[in-house]
Design a protein around this nucleic acid. Structure first.
Length: 425
RNA sequence: GCGGGCGUAGCGUAGUGGUUAACGCGUCUGGUUGUGGCCCAGAAGAUCGCGGGUUCGAACCCCGCCGCUCGCCCCA
């Protein structure tokens, strides 16, 4: 017995029964991006590893622990795309999009690869819907992007979500804040949890995010970034907040919202189910990254965008009870029961399809009963039966598989038009 | 990377030390001479996740591995 293979850990097959969800998501993405004037871009499945090492930040978990990085046969250092934004920014620079009318609105759906421990809603390969608006610092751009994602979820029937919003200020003032934060925590360092002691050096903003009881006594009194934003960042944040509050979108300020990528400044946001405390409950999130283009070697170009996992959208759709009726496999199921009828049957199927009518041909070796069962299982509206009598007479027995089950003899050449008019009627 | 739970035909489950591992759904074939759904009958389909151990005997007990899952970390 040979080995039975399984899909690799953390990957999954999308079976036919799940395709309607994907179809619905992709359709809605097409609509919502059109409503906002976005154009589609597709970037490669892999990039030079440096795009993410420099772009996402080489001390982020995504790059440091989760990236599928490898050397190819020519010695190039490559990485399977772990997140979309740096790749799109690379394409922006590579193709001189700075000379297009600004800002440039781009979207994509892209496979993302991260080596992480799989859980529900967390996979090693997942699909992300990504939107980026490049070349504008207008805070209304931030609100637009958040509103676009919110609209998508609404169109998909997802309810019970909320937007968590914060501002990370600009890079320089943030550095100053981080020093204040470290000064605050430094005297207590010994008493903090092990995790937090690590975070103190690596990612001090995360100190505020801890749920460990040893850290809790210090959280409330700790200085919060959102309370001491620079004037520019505060003004920016207030426009974003005001714009969103003028809509139906429920927004809450989350001063502890920190995202796992280095390039964010000012606006950051996440959209999460408000009733669901699951750790991987975030359906979509993103923010502003005005410094990223320079990191990638381009001239300063502001940007704002998000990623949202399609697998997680579908989980949310299911949570909200969104279902789809099973579609018929064909309009006509041809029952093939006559000796020497193969050419006739094949020709009929072909003419039906040319007329835009879908057709499945039963297996000629199977009994009438078996083929009729096949017709029923296919949910076809009509069975077109060709037996010895019909073959001789140049007709087919056209049976309506609806409730009445009426059947009529139809001349072979007229089948497409008869079926066509019945389907329309 | 760390901790908990689970792993029996395609799917959902029963069986928790003792003859050929059971049931439902699904699949296939029939229920006479060319007709689906409902019904009835029959058939196929299981290395009981994998490997080792305990035992006269293991799906069942023990250990390791793999996978799934829940929580932590992190993220979409």
């Amino acid at each position: 017995m040979t080995t039975r293979f399984q899909a690799p850990r953390g990957t999954q097959d999308v079976l036919p029964e799940m395709q309607p969800y994907w179809q619905a998501v992709n359709d809605a993405i097409r609509v919502v991006t059109r409503l906002h004037g976005f154009r589609r871009i597709d970037t490669p499945a892999f990039e030079y590893a440096g795009v993410f090492e420099k772009g996402s930040g080489d001390t982020t978990d995504i790059v440091e622990k989760e990236m599928y990085a490898f050397e190819d046969r020519g010695g190039d250092k490559l990485a399977l795309t772990p997140e979309g934004t740096p790749a799109i920014c690379r394409a922006y620079l590579e193709h001189g999009m700075g000379s297009w009318p600004q800002p440039v609105r781009l979207y994509t759906t892209h496979q993302m690869f991260r080596y992480d421990r799989p859980q529900k809603g967390r996979y090693r390969q997942h699909t992300q819907f990504d939107c980026e608006i490049l070349g504008s610092t207008d805070p209304l751009i931030d609100a637009e992007v958040i509103g676009l994602l919110w609209r998508l979820y609404s169109m998909l029937g997802i309810t019970g979500l909320g937007v968590r919003l914060s501002s990370l200020d600009d890079i320089e003032p943030r550095r100053a804040y981080i020093e204040t934060l470290k000064d605050y925590y430094r005297p207590h360092l010994e008493k903090l949890s092990d995790d937090s002691q690590r975070r103190f050096e690596r990612n001090p903003l995360r100190l505020l995010d801890s749920k460990d009881e040893r850290d809790l006594p210090y959280k409330d009194a700790a200085p919060k970034l959102i309370d001491q934003l620079s004037d520019e960042a505060r003004a920016h944040h207030e426009v974003v907040l005001g714009a969103l509050e003028a809509t139906e979108i429920p927004v809450s300020i989350d001063p502890l919202l920190v995202r796992g990528l280095d390039y964010y400044n000012r606006t950051v946001f996440e959209i999460v189910p408000d009733a669901d405390a699951r750790a991987q409950g975030t359906v979509g999130g993103g923010g502003r990254y005005d410094g990223l283009m320079e990191i990638l070697g381009g001239s300063p170009t502001p940007g704002m965008g998000f990623g949202s996992g399609i697998e997680r959208m579908i989980l949310e759709m299911q949570r909200c009870g969104v279902t789809f009726d099973e579609a018929a496999l064909a309009d006509v199921y041809i029952v093939n029961r006559a000796e020497g009828a193969s050419a006739t049957v094949f020709g009929l199927a072909s003419r039906l399809r040319s007329a835009g009518i879908s057709a499945i041909v039963g297996e000629s070796g199977k009994s009438m009963k078996a083929q009729m069962r096949g017709a029923n299982a296919s949910a076809a509206r009509f069975a077109a039966i060709i037996g010895d009598d019909e073959l001789r007479a140049g007709t087919v027995m056209l049976k309506d598989l609806g409730a009445d089950g009426e059947q009529v003899a139809v001349e072979l050449s007229r089948v497409p038009s008869v079926v066509g008019s019945k389907l329309r009627g």
